[in-house]
Simulated scan of single mutants.
Amino acid sequence: MKELIKYLLDNLYIDFQGEISLEQVRGFLREDDGREARQLMAKLIEEKGVDDLLITLADCLKEHIQTGINERVIREQLSTYSES
């Protein structure tokens, strides 16, 4: 999850620069066997890609701009997305 969160933080502007594929996310999560990573991967497979995740994540992060977007906030939003 840390590598994925770093990627998202590095590319955040309430949209994400560059393209990221399901295979790239799988690569970022490859060595993370935590529940959050497994749940997120399952959700992305169910959704057949990362497009919905990126749109939803960018939209949800807008409310955190004034207080700050950091690793904790992105982790919380990824967990919320994967649980929905």
Results as ranks from 00 to 15, higher is better:
54 L>N: 05
28 F>W: 08
52 D>T: 09
48 K>H: 12
42 A>V: 05
5 I>N: 03
78 L>R: 06
61 L>A: 07
79 S>Y: 05
64 H>W: 05
66 Q>L: 14
33 D>G: 12
39 Q>H: 15
51 D>E: 15
67 T>Y: 00
12 L>F: 09
16 F>R: 09
81 Y>T: 11
34 G>D: 08
65 I>L: 15
78 L>Q: 08
44 L>K: 04
27 G>V: 02
76 E>V: 11
19 E>T: 02
17 Q>M: 06
32 D>Y: 05
48 K>E: 07
41 M>L: 15
16 F>I: 04
9 L>Y: 01
67 T>P: 00
14 I>P: 07
59 D>W: 06
73 V>A: 14
50 V>Y: 11
30 R>C: 09
29 L>A: 09
7 Y>A: 00
59 D>G: 14
70 N>Y: 04
83 E>H: 15
42 A>I: 02
39 Q>Y: 08
62 K>V: 08
28 F>H: 07
42 A>D: 11
4 L>A: 05
45 I>F: 10
46 E>C: 07
23 E>V: 01
45 I>A: 04
84 S>W: 11
3 E>R: 02
15 D>S: 10
76 E>F: 11
27 G>H: 06
45 I>Y: 15
44 L>Y: 03
80 T>R: 15
44 L>V: 06
23 E>F: 00
68 G>N: 10
1 M>S: 14
78 L>W: 09
55 I>T: 11
31 E>I: 01
67 T>D: 11
60 C>K: 15
82 S>C: 14
71 E>D: 13
20 I>C: 02
65 I>C: 05
62 K>R: 15
28 F>K: 04
80 T>N: 04
48 K>L: 04
34 G>R: 12
48 K>S: 08
76 E>C: 08
71 E>H: 09
72 R>F: 11
45 I>M: 08
20 I>N: 01
64 H>P: 03
64 H>E: 10
44 L>H: 00
48 K>T: 07
48 K>F: 06
37 A>F: 06
5 I>E: 04
56 T>Q: 07
62 K>P: 06
7 Y>W: 14
21 S>Q: 01
43 K>F: 02
6 K>W: 00
8 L>W: 03
23 E>P: 00
38 R>T: 06
41 M>N: 10
18 G>Y: 00
14 I>S: 15
68 G>E: 07
5 I>V: 13
7 Y>P: 07
57 L>I: 08
12 L>P: 02
52 D>M: 07
23 E>I: 00
61 L>N: 00
45 I>N: 13
81 Y>G: 11
18 G>A: 05
50 V>H: 10
47 E>Q: 12
7 Y>T: 08
14 I>Y: 12
56 T>K: 12
56 T>D: 12
62 K>Q: 06
19 E>M: 00
7 Y>F: 12
22 L>T: 01
27 G>R: 13
66 Q>H: 15
65 I>Y: 09
55 I>H: 06
5 I>K: 06
62 K>S: 12
4 L>C: 05
48 K>I: 02
67 T>E: 13
78 L>M: 13
45 I>R: 02
36 E>P: 01
54 L>V: 04
